[in-house]
Amino acid sequence: MADVTVFDDPLVVAGETFRSRLWIGTAGYPNQKVLLDSVRASRAEMVTMSIRRVSLAGQGFDTVRLLKDYKFLPNTAGCETARDAILTAELAREALETNWIKLEVIGDRETLYPDVQELLKATEELIARGFTVLPYCNDDPVVCQRLADLGAAAVMPMGSLIGSGMGVANPANIELICRRSPVPVVVDAGIGTASDAVIAMELGAAAVLLNTAVAKAADPVRMAAAMGHAVEAGRLAYLAGRIPRRGRAEPSSPQLGLVGS
């Protein structure tokens, strides 16, 4: 029997091929070893990074060296204007030698909801400057369409609030976005545990991006492995096509030849 694996079904974003449909964040792990072991256990090929001013308090550990075997996806986390996000992206391109950018432009510090107007503006400008732009955005089909129209390489709608662990809050929206999107849809933020990642993939997401669910789990390495399996399971189930829901029982064993009278 042929092996049934997701390796028959690579993810392609902006012409780059990924065997794994999990992208993983690198922040908030208990230590460097747990971070590296978790990334390995997740089988992700791409990791997210942030760009921050150098602190005189010291350099901390060298994550760039630690994760040198992985593709870096720098973010613009914390930026509140297109202007700041563009400069951060330019610095990230130089620091990490990649033109890929996870574009975040935040409109509200409490909910970390995107500022759509600034996000669209920054997307357009960064694409003009040759970036491969992956915007973190609302789970809104029209916003996702606008971003794709501007040339975003993928759209990354939120499952739910960043770091909340509430899972996919609006599955109907995510499904709608996945059905209509001309570019890959990466569900970003809100994943709390493996079943949330499965659901995102079953709804048709091309990939899942998560961080806190693994970094803050009681056992991050185990949770990372669980997430790796979850995206594969969800993807396979999506491709396989689920049975319809019905309100009554349907016996699965043959009804003829029952023993007894």
Partner: peptide
């Protein structure tokens, strides 16, 4: 002048 470095991020 801005001097930045890549750090862990989500």
């Amino acid at each position: 002048v801005e001097i930045v470095r890549a750090l862990p991020g989500g």
